[in-house]
Design a protein around this nucleic acid. Structure first.
Lengths: 193, 193
DNA sequence: CCTACCGATCGGTAGG
DNA sequence: CCTACCGATCGGTAGG
């Protein structure tokens, strides 16, 4: 019984290893340019072994995306749920989102771009998780718009805001001049009055 | 002589056809997921024929990127060069950039993302063309900052601005609610006071 | 620009 | 999770 539980735990660990390696490689080289052999090698397996844990390469992508999104969602909730003032909450959310993007080893929005490689069913599953993430933002932006602390309607604003933040994955460098705190502040300042 | 010139013209046309098809497919499916056979088929050629015009698949990507960037650069210059007021110029540049991104059939910034598939020499060539494009923006943003019409330093701002604009390729729909004019205005308003 | 083709690679599977 | 393998596909070339 104990051995059985331990076995299942180890197996789950290997699955996690594969997911992390896959996410990193998919972001780095793109889904199509990453081979399942690359992923296997990254975790010290032989070429056929990933298929013991995942049915297909697409399945690996789907699982990596969903896990990345859910981790980000949990972090966002944990950081912002207690904040009553919507402006302060937005600032914390922006900083948390940048952390989700740039402090981990998997840049989810760039991964999301790869959903073109999935079938409609998988894309729908991912869109559902992604929508939850968006909804948290929309609620706070609506709150700010209602109290007059945003100039314009809040839906196009959400899209422009996500653009500012998500595009950082294209130019941010850990050893660059700007810290995440500074970027977060600049983005928030340009949004709020 | 006339026939010769005509022949060269037709050949150049086929080359252009290949470039346009390649750019569209590379954006749509990604570089690695697009086969040279896809590109050949898109212009009615057989699988080996693209290699009469281009040495390799990478060469096609490089040429498509450079041409896209140069076309965009020309449009940007043509639209903005005559404008003296920097604020008005910035607004026109924003609108023109959105046109470059979303009115053509090749979304250059998303193509730029594929430069990871090129070698260092090709990447450097592309970076040089891209830098010229950026420099036009930086000059106008500096001018605005110097005259106090921008809140913060203008270099991080340029990056955030490009994020707002380039990310539109991820959500903009031609038949959606927002027009390019409206998006351009919203972006400009959130940048300027 | 086409025909015919090659060598390499890749996702995935059977069987243990 | 490994070994051994298959069928398909792909970038690219020779020769015309």
């Amino acid at each position: 019984m104990l051995r059985k539980r331990q076995g299942a735990g180890l197996e789950a660990n290997r699955r996690e290893d594969l997911l992390r390696a896959a996410a990193r490689l998919f972001v780095e080289k793109g889904f199509a340019a990453t081979t399942t052999r690359d992923i296997a090698e990254a975790v010290g397996m032989r070429s056929g072994s990933p298929f013991y844990h995942f049915r297909s390469k697409q399945d690996l992508l789907k699982a990596a995306m969903i896990e990345g999104l859910e981790t980000g969602y949990r972090r966002l909730q944990a950081a912002s749920a207690g904040l009553v003032d919507p402006e302060q909450r937005l600032r914390v959310m922006i900083r948390t989102h940048l952390g989700n993007l740039l402090e981990g080893d998997c840049q989810v929005p760039m991964l999301l771009y790869e959903s073109r490689s999935l079938d409609a069913a998988a894309r729908a599953e991912i869109a559902a998780v992604s929508d939850r993430y968006q909804a948290v933002w929309q609620a706070t932006l609506d709150e700010l718009a209602a109290s007059g602390r945003l100039r314009s309607s809040s839906q196009p604003l959400r899209l422009l805001l996500f653009g500012m933040l998500n595009w950082t994955t294209q130019w941010y460098r850990r050893d660059g001049e700007l810290s995440l705190d500074e970027i977060a502040e600049a983005a928030a300042d340009h949004l709020l009055g």
